[in-house]
């Protein structure tokens, strides 16, 4: 900008500079506030935020079977594990896990990845996890991989029978969504 020099005594240069600065700051603040609605509108709208829960009847799921349910547009795996699969998950040494956190939204964030912290409370045969690979979002294949859980076909992440990452590029265990039992054979996810 061309510098315009006012030599008029009536204009105190200090006051002028302050006026220019104040105006510039005011304009910048306004631009910031104006930008927010344009950014915020891309966040989930009120209807999406309210759509939270899905109910599932577990009576239909036989032992060893994995079903996938849509919740918030993503698959949730519900696995009725066999005794052997539960035992296998329980005996894993937590020290050798790449991700030692439970990743369970129903527990405090510092809970460890023990099978008890992954499975349904008091009903250890039930494992409920979000069926989205924590690497780049593909859907892992059930009952596959080297650890008896899931294998993600995209980049070869192996999960065990508690949905914990064991080998491959995924950084975290499969997430456990918020859910609760409603009666003996019904859960509500979300």
């Amino acid at each position: 900008m061309r510098r315009v020099t006012a030599t008029d005594d009536a204009h105190d240069p200090g006051r002028r500079d302050f006026l220019f600065l104040a105006t510039g700051a005011w304009a910048a603040a306004g631009a910031g506030f104006l930008a927010w609605p344009f950014i915020s509108q891309m966040n989930p709208d009120a209807a999406s935020l309210a759509l939270g829960s899905t109910e599932v009847d577990l009576g239909q799921i036989s032992e060893g079977q994995v079903v996938s349910i849509k919740w918030r547009g993503k698959p949730v795996f519900i696995w009725n594990r066999t005794k052997a699969q539960v035992e296998e998950a329980k005996k894993v040494d937590l020290g050798q896990l790449p991700d030692k956190s439970a990743r369970n939204e129903n527990l405090p964030s510092d809970a460890d990845a023990a099978d008890a912290n992954r499975a349904a409370p008091g009903k250890e045969n039930w494992l409920v996890v979000v069926g989205v690979c924590t690497h780049l979002g593909c859907i892992p294949l059930s009952n596959s991989g080297d650890f008896g859980g899931w294998l993600c076909p995209c980049h070869g992440s192996h999960y065990d029978s508690a949905g914990r990452i064991r080998r491959g590029p995924a950084p975290e265990n499969l997430h456990v969504p918020p859910y609760a039992f409603e009666g003996d054979s019904k859960i509500k996810i979300g």
Partner: peptide, 10 residues
């Protein structure tokens, strides 16, 4: 107008 964040404004 109802659900989108600031949708009514836009």
């Amino acid at each position: 107008m109802r659900d989108v964040n600031y949708g009514w404004l836009l």
